[in-house]
Design a protein around this nucleic acid. Structure first.
Length: 651
RNA sequence: GCUGGCGUAGCUCAGUCCGGUAGAGCAGCUGAUUUGUAAUCAGCCGGUCGGGGGUUCGAAUCCCUCCGCCAGCUCCA
């Protein structure tokens, strides 16, 4: 029998019989590896353990420790789910069932939607199938036979997939769990060797989905679940989901009276007093960053004549998302973005190359008529404000301006203890301008990113219709990603608005526009911060920075004196004058996560002190009022977001 | 917008399946208590059961419809 030579990751090589399954390589190395083996990577392609070795190859055995293992588990669990559903709901049609970042799903065509009881039954069936340790068998079927097989079963979606994905291939890959009478799926694999490997999984919910994600296609029912390599990791994941609920900005927003919503203004935030403090603090912070960076703040109108939107292209591309109004026979639209207003202000006077870059910053509200179903707390609203700006630069200034912006973003996020991930989004299918312009713009952004030296990923086809962009995702404490900051290059709008500057050559030139936001929107950024800090605000952001707690009525005068001094020095304070025991007042302040509680009783009144209790560190003892003020102001100046705020989040 | 779920007091929730006088805790108010580092006691107030329509002798409960919220889908300049 002929032999093939396989090379292992450590560089050693072995000879095996040609056609032997890759499993034998694992067995030959050690019985332990053989039992841990899940799949193999043969010449960079991941395959089943049953895959025959036909030629010399590099082979790496995939075990639970391999980076591929989690996706493999999840995809195999999705198959297990589909097998259970097929078993329990005869006549069901299967769609696709991939692994995702958080778990997996599988889409089905069923006569009625799944209900929670169905999920319980399906999960029980999955465990039953897992316990039977059934092999995942891969079979190569003649293409026509596979089509006939799925066609006879009424699985027209699978037939469609085979037709689209295997053109010109004589054989197609199918998997069964048990045999052809139960569950067969058209799938390239690979899979774990048998269902017994799958233990740590759970179903999480159902939702509606469409075939191939297109709302014009057949509606399907999606079942979500997640799987991990160990029960411990699964439990940790479920705990994170619980933690997310506890930190939900909608819950904390209500508890701390930061904001509210009302059915008569869906998607529009009512900023209550404490939320307004937060909002204004962030707005002022942003100004304090942007003014030294050469930005000037402006305020453009909210409502514009349709003519402006026709000029900008929004009328053609974005009208369905705009709030439109009519007045005296004229059609008007509420602004969904600030750019066109800034363009009009740019062209209100002659611009010289000596003036560039010109940077307009604006924080006025924007309105976008988002579909009702997408609204969600503060993270997706219909009215919001961006820390928006447009930088008008010369072609030659793009690189430096984008680099400056990258540094600015890093610095701001650093001030909040956040570290964003960068994505470069490139030309979408629908775009303005020419491919050459796009290539040039994309090259400029790439160069700036490389110069910044920070890692980034490429999000192909996700650019805005007028130019490529760099987006910044922030991962919060529990692993969810939020897109906040954005830097967008725009070669198109200067043309449309006929924006010019006079160059050194005394000729007119087009400026390049950089659209950019650092927070993104105040609304979304505040939602992110609430969840980041779990409502335990660092002192500089806390709507109430300290609460004065008189022990009894006879300390009210002193408490008020203290309160006045604190307020006069600029601290945001409250005095709890209720006739309650000190323990009660402390409990309430603690639940509100007020950074400092200042107990004032006989001793303090006599000595001119306050007894300081920190939200995170507890009783700190008596301090002179002025000393407390000095320390607090210093802490505010430092914008500390360090250990104290984080530590108590877990408490 | 689509699919599903949900909507009962300011908040958290029970009651809805199987129609028969709307409940609890917290919050609030009043009184007593004058308090030393996470809940003092007692009493009281509080709801067109999301809106509208229908079935019924009778609807929080069953049906229709609209609105809002939640999850996901789609979308996201």
């Amino acid at each position: 029998m002929s032999q093939v030579t396989i090379t292992l990751p450590d560089g050693s090589s072995r000879a095996v019989s040609a056609g032997a399954p890759v499993r034998e390589v694992a067995s030959a190395i050690s019985p332990r590896l053989a039992s841990a083996a899940l799949a193999a990577v043969v010449d960079d392609r991941m395959v089943d353990l049953s895959c025959p070795l036909e030629a010399d190859a590099r082979v790496r055995i995939v075990t639970p420790d391999s980076p591929e293992a989690l996706d493999l588990y999840r995809h195999s669990t999705a198959h297990l789910l589909a097998a259970a559903v097929t078993n329990l709901f005869p006549g069901v049609q299967c769609g696709i069932g991939p692994a995702t970042d958080e778990g997996f799903f599988y889409d089905f065509v069923v006569p009625r939607p799944f209900v929670p009881e169905d999920l319980d039954a399906i999960e029980r069936k999955m465990r039953e199938l897992a316990q039977q340790d059934l092999p995942y068998q891969r079979q190569m079927w003649p293409r026509e036979e596979a089509k006939r097989f799925f066609g006879d079963r009424g699985e027209t979606l699978k037939v469609q997939l085979i037709e689209e994905k295997t053109q010109g291939q004589p054989l197609v890959s199918c998997y069964t769990i048990r045999d052809r009478d139960t569950f067969v799926d058209f799938c390239t694999g690979p899979h774990v060797p048998s269902t017994g490997k799958l233990k740590a999984f759970t179903l999480l919910g159902t939702s509606n989905a469409y075939w191939k994600g297109d709302a014009r296609n057949q509606p399907m029912q999606r079942i979500y679940g997640t799987a991990f390599l160990s029960e411990k990791e699964l439990q940790a994941h479920l705990q994170r989901l619980e933690e997310a609920k506890r930190r939900d900005h909608r819950k904390i927003g209500r508890e701390q009276k930061l904001f509210m919503f009302h059915p008569w203004a869906p998607g529009a935030t009512f900023w209550l007093a404490k939320g307004t403090v937060l909002y204004n603090t962030l707005a002022d912070y942003m100004r304090s960053v942007l003014v030294p960076a050469g930005y000037i703040e402006v305020r453009a109108p909210i409502v514009f004549n349709k003519a402006l939107w026709e000029r900008s292209g929004h009328w053609q591309h974005y009208r369905q998302n705009m709030f439109l109004v009519e007045s005296e026979g004229e059609q008007l639209g509420l602004k969904a973005m600030n750019c066109p207003g800034h363009f009009l202000m740019y062209s209100s006077e002659m611009r010289s190359y000596r003036d560039l870059p010109i940077r307009f910053h604006e924080q006025t509200p924007l309105h976008r008529n988002e579909a009702s179903g997408v609204l969600s707390g503060l993270t997706r609203v219909r009215q919001f404000s961006q820390d928006d700006a447009h930088c008008f630069v010369m072609e030659s200034q793009i690189g430096e301006e984008v680099e400056r912006l990258l540094r600015l973003v890093q610095r701001v996020y650093g001030d909040f203890g956040l570290s964003p991930e960068m994505k470069l989004s490139t030309r979408p299918p629908e775009f303005l301008g020419t491919v050459e312009q796009w290539n040039h713009a994309e090259a400029e952004l790439t160069r700036a990113l490389e110069a910044a030296g920070a890692p980034y990923t490429i999000n192909a086809g996700d650019g805005a219709f007028y130019g490529p962009k760099i987006d910044f995702d922030v991962t919060d404490a529990i692993g969810r990603k939020w897109q906040c900051a954005t830097i967008q290059l725009d070669y198109m709008q200067a043309e449309r608005f006929d924006l010019t500057y006079v160059g050194a050559d005394n000729a007119e030139h087009r400026p390049v526009i950089i659209h950019r936001a650092i927070f993104g929107s105040f609304e979304r950024f505040i939602a992110l911060l609430i969840e980041q800090f779990a409502g335990a605000w660092p002192l500089w952001l806390a709507p109430v920075q300290a609460v004065v707690l008189p022990i009894s009525d006879r300390h009210l005068d002193y408490a008020r004196q203290v309160g006045e001094r604190l307020a006069a020095s600029g601290l945001r304070i409250e005095i709890d004058e209720r006739q309650e025991k000190i323990g009660y007042k402390i409990r309430e302040a603690q639940l509100q996560k007020v950074p400092y509680m200042l107990v004032t009783g006989d001793r303090e009144a006599a000595e001119g002190t306050v007894s300081v209790r920190s939200r995170s560190a507890g009783d700190l003892g008596a301090r002179l009022v002025d000393a407390f003020i000095a320390d607090a102001l210093d802490e505010i100046r430092r914008k500390d977001v360090g250990a104290p705020a984080r530590a108590e989040v877990k408490a």
